[in-house]
Amino acid sequence: MASQGTGAKRALITGAGGFTGRYLARELRQHGWEVWGLGHTPAAAFPAAELHHYVQTELNDYAPLQAAVLQAAPQAVFHLAAIAFVGHGSPADFYRVNVGGSRNLLQALAGLPTAPQSVLLASSANVYGNAAEGQLAESTPLRPANDYAVSKAAMEMMASLWVDRLPLAVARPFNYTGLDQSTDFLIPKIVDHFRRKAPMIELGNLHVWRDFSDVRDVVRAYRLLAEKPVAGAVVNVGSQALHSLQDVLDLCARLTGHAMEVRVNPAFVRANEVKTLRADTSRLDALIGERSLVPLEQTLQWMLAP
């Protein structure tokens, strides 16, 4: 995929072939950006119209990463590339990619002849851990409770070494979902069972309440943050709307007309799980303005439709 030479502002997305990366690329293109991507997915996996330019490379392979960043010369960078599935088999990979790979990227960006105007790092609300409950602000102490969350907190700390050279901002998204998200994640797993009209599903605690967003709302927030002078900000991204897993099951049952047996598998029940986690998005709203968000029911309807 070659550059189209649009003259538009150029964005570079790492993890461009991932779930969030593809929606972000679409969001940016629709708002006039020239979109370049980096990722480990082969270029042949992309429809030609998805990106203006794409380089297949690894964050931990510094020389080709540096060359790709130099070629892109982006005005804005969205760093989405990460190992994000908490149950990933090799804990060391979280640190190798999420911390070491992120450091390589920041080093390459800091070496550009012209620094980007915006570098948005996608962290995670998982950094807050399971100790705090209720509505969580960015000032909530970090108590990461698994290797994925620790790697994201470590990435944030590592990035602080570059704040005098790069206009960094950190986004901490809460749970979000959408069409084509991996069934490794909870809502796509539930949706997949309803779409297949499976007779039964095994889940953990049904009576935990979480802040769920639509991926399209999340990537819109990312774009708006990149278009504002927000260097130095750490920002929660969420909906502030709470739903339990039982709510999700009830909505899917109503939308599909399918009744499914739900079994609570003790292996899926986390000890001392926090009952309620909700994003305080007042800082995000102050930076980008109030947003019109997609209700969870509409997100589920979209995911169930194909």
Rank of each mutant, 00 (worst) to 15 (best):
L245Y: 15
K9Q: 00
W36A: 00
V234T: 07
A198T: 15
Q56P: 04
Y23P: 08
S118T: 12
C252E: 14
P199D: 11
W209V: 11
Y23T: 08
L80E: 03
I190M: 14
L109K: 06
V248L: 14
G7A: 03
R254T: 07
Q301T: 14
S139M: 12
L105D: 00
L121W: 06
T140I: 03
L112F: 10
V215E: 10
L304W: 07
A305W: 06
F78S: 04
K197N: 02
R165Y: 15
T256L: 07
F46V: 00
Q298D: 10
A125Y: 02
Y54I: 08
W302Y: 10
L142M: 09
G5M: 07
L293E: 06
R270F: 10
D214H: 13
L24K: 07
A131R: 09
K275E: 14
L186N: 01
G232H: 03
Q4R: 14
A73N: 10
P141G: 13
S160N: 08
L24P: 01
W162T: 04
A76K: 15
P113N: 04
L166F: 12
D211C: 03
L109Y: 05
K152P: 11
A253M: 09
I190T: 05
A16C: 00
P199V: 15
L277Y: 06
N60M: 03
A231T: 00
E34R: 01
Y23C: 06
Q117A: 11
A159E: 05
G134N: 03
T20H: 02
V234P: 00
A233S: 09
W33D: 02
D192S: 14
D93L: 09
A16F: 00
E27N: 10
W302I: 11
L161Y: 02
A2M: 07
A73K: 05
I13N: 00
L284D: 04
I187E: 13
V248H: 11
M157S: 13
D211G: 08
S124I: 04
Y148V: 06
V170S: 10
G5P: 01
L186W: 02
A63P: 11
M1S: 09
L80H: 03
L142K: 09
A108E: 11
Q75N: 02
R22Q: 14
P167D: 05
L251Y: 08
